[in-house]
């Protein structure tokens, strides 16, 4: 998978490495901004912190 990506990318090794770092940073940004908040709201119920009658 990552090997295939490495071969598909153009340019010398340093440029490929740079592109992969940029791709990883973009992926991380998208995860933190949109994917993680969505997963959190969809699959995790808020923890109860209050006391209340049954």
């Amino acid at each position: 998978m990552y090997g295939a990506l490495w071969r598909v990318l153009p340019g010398p090794a340093w440029l490929r490495a740079l592109i992969m770092v940029v791709l990883a940073a973009a992926l991380l940004t998208a995860l933190v901004l949109w994917v993680f908040p969505w997963v959190n709201e969809t699959f995790f119920a808020p923890q109860d912190v209050t006391v209340e009658g049954q």
Binding site: D48, T50, V51, E52, G53, Q54
Partner: peptide, 8 residues
């Protein structure tokens, strides 16, 4: 207390 401990 337990979550039902409304006495507090």
């Amino acid at each position: 207390v337990m979550p039902t401990g409304v006495d507090v």
